[in-house]
């Protein structure tokens, strides 16, 4: 199963290009589930943050390589700037196509027997797309969620999946850069840590036992609320933030 060709990241549209990309993909996608998803379109790019429906998404994976590692769990938490709604949160366990690497079991707290009974990603795809359709996905470190999902679908359907996301890590990078003074910028002083727990601590958010997809998605949703409360205007438009 493992591949020797290195993973090649898909071409991602520019900030302004997402609407077009969805329109085109709605025509070209072969799988009806993907077709429907694209057809539903993105959030209107001019939607103010204050009125946007977000959904935080987090994956736990067997490793960091989208080609040779697989998704084992997915956490989804829908929210707005004013409320995170736990009663609409979803957690999926999915069965990876390759054997779980034993070390990762400790990290995720997910055991072989949990996984044995879990469905393949293909079986939950329709439900998953239904959940995120029409919402703006929020992740922390987009490389994981975007590339693992894209790659997993390439393997199964021969076509990938891309959609705009807000990456709280990118946002934080920008916020920290802005807060540096000229001297620090000139000296290229290192930025503070961009790890999720470290950033959360700076915003006075509680310490969670991370590495559970559900909790990490919740942690990401809370972080976006905090970042916008501190550094942005809720009337700013979503197209300034997604990528």
């Amino acid at each position: 199963m493992s591949s020797n060709t290195p993973y090649k990241a898909p071409a991602v549209p520019s900030r302004e290009g997402w609407s077009n990309y969805f329109q085109t993909s709605a025509r070209t996608a072969a799988d009806p589930r993907l077709k429907d998803f694209y057809q539903a379109g993105t959030l209107p790019p001019d939607t103010p943050l204050a009125q946007a429906d977000f959904i935080a998404m987090d994956f736990e994976t067997t490793g960091l390589d989208p080609l040779n590692d697989a998704i084992v769990s997915i956490g989804l938490v829908p929210f707005t700037l004013s409320r995170i709604r736990c009663n609409q949160a979803t957690h999926y366990l999915v069965k990876p196509r390759r054997d779980l690497v034993s070390e990762s079991i400790a990290i995720h707290g997910i055991t072989h027997s949990d996984i044995e009974e879990a469905p393949d990603l293909n079986l939950i795809l329709e439900d998953l797309l239904g959940q995120i359709s029409g919402k703006l996905v929020v992740v922390h470190y987009r490389q994981i969620e975007r590339h693992f999902l894209h790659q997993a679908l390439l393997k199964r359907l021969n076509e990938g999946l891309l959609f705009p996301v807000i990456d709280t890590m990118t946002l934080e990078h920008g916020i920290c850069r802005k807060q540096q003074n000229l001297m620090e910028k000139l000296l290229r002083s290192p930025l503070p840590s961009l790890r999720l727990p470290d950033i959360r601590e700076r915003y006075g958010l509680p310490r969670y036992h991370l590495h559970h997809a559900m909790t990490d998605a919740l942690a990401t949703a809370e972080l976006l609320q905090a970042q916008i409360a501190h550094a942005f205007d809720p009337q700013q438009k979503v197209k300034e933030f997604w990528e």
């Binding site: 736990c86 949160a89 919740l218």
Partner: peptide, 29 residues
């Protein structure tokens, strides 16, 4: 499972006297 969560920056009003109230609040941090 039915909790809702919201964040307030230091110094900001959370509830104002006389406004309608729909929730019970618990300080998480």
């Amino acid at each position: 499972r039915n909790i809702e969560i919201t964040y307030f920056r230091a110094g900001f009003d959370i509830l104002q006297y006389g406004d309608p109230i729909q929730d019970l609040y618990i300080v998480r941090s």
